[in-house]
Write a protein that binds this DNA or RNA. Structure first.
Length: 553
RNA sequence: GGCGAGUUGGUGAAGUGGCUUAACACACUGCCCUUUCACGGCAGCAUUCACGGAUUCGAAUUCCGUACUCGUCACCA
C-alpha cells in the first residue's frame, strides 16, 4: 500500500479519531520532578480479590517512588470487560488503603495524567494505532479464530515457531481494495503490528533485578487492538507508561518473555522505554506434594490480602515482611537499627531476589511478635480496639468497658529492655489476656486450664491475707520467699533440687498456685504486677471461683 | 517443544575468583538466668553450595553439558 492508501485506510478504520499524537504529547508533558525521582505504577486488573503478590509489587512501587521523592500512581487495567468483576475497582482501592500502600496519584487519588482507567482511554490508544497504520507499522487482520488455530496446528507439526508472522500473517499485505471488500462484508478484524523483527537476531535487555538478558527479537504480528477496539495489555502498557511518564516498570516476571515486544513497540512509536524491574513470584513449598508453586488463594489462606486484616496481623508487621523479601539485606539492617523504620531504609533493585521468594510464615509471625513487643500497652490497646471494632464486636465492648485495666495489663513488662513477645496478632490479645476482664474470666472460669496439679487452697488464702500490694517487686518476692519457707517450701528451686525430700516444693510452686488461681493459666506476665492491678478483693474472688470450680469437677 | 530465568542446612537467605574451615535471621536442640512463660546469654545445627566436566596455583562464585523447578509461547492481564 502506498502512503496515500494507508492514509485512506486509517480514515476508514478510525473515522472518529480526530486527535493526533502531538495533541496527547502536549497534553501530558514531562513531569517536573527532582533529579533521580522514580515514577512507578501499580496496574491491577479488577478481576477479583487481591493477592499477596499484587500487594508485594505495589509495595515495591511505593517504596521506590517514596525514597526518590517520585510518584507512585495507580492505574486500573480494565481493558478486558469479560473478566471484570463487580466491585473490583473499589476492592483494589480499599485493600490498598487498608494496607497503607497509598498511591500519590492515580485512580481515586487525583493527578494530571489521567484518566487512570484504561477503559476510559480508548480514544488515546486508537489515535496512536491510527498513526501506526499511516506509517505502515500496523494493519487490520481479518483472520478467524479457526484459521489461526489451524495455522497453529500446522506449525506444531512442522516444528516451527508458533504464531502469526511472515508467511502466516496472511492479511499483512492486503490491498486497500481487499480491505474495503472485507469491511463491506462486515468481517470482524483486529489491528496487528506489522513486526519488523527478526527472531534470529537477539537483543540484549537490562533488567534492574535480573541483570542482562539476551532475548530473541520479536517477529510476531501481535494484536494491538482487539476486535472490540480496546487495546491489548502490551499496547496499553506502552502508550500509558509513555504518556504517564513512568520511569520504572516494576511488575511480575511473567512479563519478561514479552519484553522484546514492548521494546519494539516503544521504538516503533518513537518513545524512550522505561527501566524494567521484573520481580519473581512469591512461592511456597506445597505441604502435600513438596513441589514449589505460586502462592494459591485456594490452598494458602495467607495468599489473599483479606487474610491479614481478618486474622489481625498488623499492617506495619506485614510491611516489615514485604520489605525483607523485597531486599535481602533489609532483615539484618532492621535488626541492627531498632530505632529506625522502613522509610529510613534505602531499597535497591540489585538487592532484590532474582529467583522466586518463598513465603515464610514463621518469619512473618516472628516479625509480628517483635512488632508488638516494641509497642507500649496503650498502643496495643488502641490498635486492638480498632481491630475488634470490625472483627470481634463483643470483645470490643469489653475492651472499652475495661480500658483502664486493660492498658495496665498490656503494659506489664513493657518498659524493660526485654519486652515480652507473647502477642503475634490482634486476635491473640483476647486469649493471652483472658484473665484481664472480670466478666470474661468468670464466664470462662478455669475450663481452659489444662494442668492436673492440685493446689493447697487454704495455703494461698492465708498467703493473700498476709499479702502487701504496696511494696516493690523485690520486697514482694522476698516476702513471698519467707512465706514459702515458713510453710515448708524451699526458698529457691536450687535448694529444692538439692534436697527435694526436705520440702513440699519451692517458691515457684507457690507462685504457680497463685498464678493458676488468678489467671487460669500456668504462664503469664509478671505475677506481682497482675496482682497489683487486680487488688486483694478480686484476688480473693478468684480464689473462691477456683474452689467452686474444683469442687464441681 | 522453542525461548528466558532459577537451583546454597529444617526454613528464608548472604555470597559476583583467594578475607568462606559458607554471614545473618527464623525454626529446632542443649545449657545458663529465672516465681511461670517469655525475653536474654552461651553452645550445637551445610567439611559443603543440584549433578558431571572444563578453565585456574585457587571456584559456591567463570565456561560447557545434564537434571529438576518456575515463567512464557491468547483478540487475559
Amino acid at each position: 500500500m502506498t502512503e496515500k492508501e494507508r492514509l485512506e485506510l486509517a480514515e476508514i478504520l478510525f473515522p472518529n479519531i480526530d486527535k493526533t499524537r502531538e495533541y496527547y504529547e502536549e497534553m501530558y508533558p514531562e513531569r517536573e520532578l527532582p533529579e533521580g525521582a522514580m515514577v512507578t505504577r501499580y496496574g491491577p486488573s479488577p478481576t477479583g480479590s487481591v493477592h499477596l503478590g499484587n500487594l508485594f509489587s505495589a509495595f515495591c512501587d511505593m517504596v521506590y517512588a517514596r525514597q526518590s521523592n517520585g510518584v507512585f500512581f495507580l492505574r486500573i487495567e480494565d481493558t478486558d470487560q469479560k473478566r471484570a468483576v463487580e466491585g473490583g475497582i473499589e476492592n483494589i482501592t480499599g485493600v490498598l488503603k487498608g494496607f497503607d500502600i497509598t498511591p500519590t496519584e492515580g485512580y481515586g487519588f487525583g493527578g494530571e495524567y489521567g484518566p487512570y482507567q484504561q477503559s476510559e482511554r480508548t480514544e488515546i490508544y486508537q489515535t496512536y494505532v491510527k498513526d501506526l497504520i499511516i506509517k505502515g507499522f500496523a494493519y487490520p487482520c481479518f483472520m478467524k479464530e479457526e484459521e489461526i488455530e489451524q495455522i497453529r496446528e500446522e506449525q506444531e507439526i512442522n516444528k516451527v515457531q508458533i504464531g502469526i508472522y511472515g508467511m502466516y500473517a496472511v492479511d499483512r499485505d492486503l490491498s486497500l481494495e481487499e480491505v474495503k471488500e472485507k469491511l463491506a462484508n462486515k468481517e470482524e478484524y483486529v489491528i496487528r503490528l506489522k513486526s519488523p523483527g527478526n527472531s534470529n537476531k537477539q537483543i540484549e535487555i537490562v533488567d534492574l533485578i535480573k541483570g542482562k538478558m539476551r532475548l530473541p527479537e520479536r517477529n510476531l504480528d501481535d494484536v494491538l487492538l482487539k476486535k472490540d477496539g480496546t487495546p491489548t495489555y502490551h499496547f496499553a502498557h506502552v502508550i500509558d507508561d509513555h504518556l504517564m511518564h513512568t520511569t520504572h516498570v516494576i511488575r511480575g516476571d511473567e512479563w519478561v518473555s514479552s519484553l522484546p515486544l514492548h521494546i519494539q513497540l516503544f521504538e516503533l512509536l518513537g518513545f524512550t522505554p522505561p527501566k524494567y524491574a521484573h520481580i519473581a513470584p512469591i512461592t511456597i513449598k506445597d505441604s502435600e506434594t513438596g513441589a514449589i508453586r505460586k502462592l494459591s488463594k485456594r490452598k494458602d489462606p495467607w495468599a489473599g490480602a483479606k487474610f491479614y486484616e481478618e486474622s489481625g496481623i498488623p499492617i506495619e508487621a506485614l510491611h516489615l515482611y514485604l520489605a525483607t523479601i523485597a531486599n535481602t539485606n533489609f532483615e539484618e539492617w532492621y535488626l541492627n537499627n531498632q530505632d529506625k523504620t522502613i522509610e529510613d531504609f534505602e531499597f535497591s533493585f540489585d538487592k532484590q531476589a532474582i529467583g522466586g521468594t518463598s513465603f515464610d510464615e514463621a518469619k512473618l509471625t516472628n516479625l509480628c511478635r517483635t512488632y508488638f513487643s516494641r509497642k507500649n500497652g496503650e498502643e496495643v490497646y488502641n490498635e486492638t480496639l480498632f481491630y475488634t471494632e470490625k472483627f470481634d464486636k463483643e470483645y470490643n465492648k469489653l475492651l472499652k468497658e475495661n480500658k483502664e485495666d486493660m492498658i495496665q495489663f498490656l503494659s506489664i513488662e513493657k518498659d524493660g529492655p526485654r519486652p515480652r513477645k507473647d502477642i503475634a496478632k490482634y486476635s491473640d490479645v483476647k486469649e493471652e489476656f483472658s484473665y484481664a476482664i472480670d466478666s470474661m474470666f468468670q464466664g470462662e472460669n478455669y475450663s481452659k486450664y489444662e494442668g492436673d496439679k492440685t493446689y493447697d487452697i487454704s495455703l494461698i488464702r492465708s498467703y493473700v491475707e498476709e499479702l502487701d500490694l504496696n511494696v516493690s517487686n523485690e520486697e514482694w518476692f522476698q516476702q513471698t520467699k519467707e512465706f514459702a519457707v515458713a510453710h515448708g517450701y524451699a526458698a529457691s528451686p536450687k535448694d529444692y533440687k538439692k534436697n527435694p525430700e526436705n520440702y513440699k516444693g519451692h517458691v515457684g510452686d507457690v507462685c504457680e498456685a497463685i498464678r493458676v488461681m488468678i489467671t487460669g493459666r500456668t504462664k503469664s506476665p509478671d505475677l506481682f504486677s497482675i496482682m497489683k492491678i487486680l487488688g486483694k478483693r478480686r484476688i480473693k474472688e478468684r480464689i473462691d471461683l477456683w474452689e467452686n470450680f474444683n469442687h464441681r469437677s
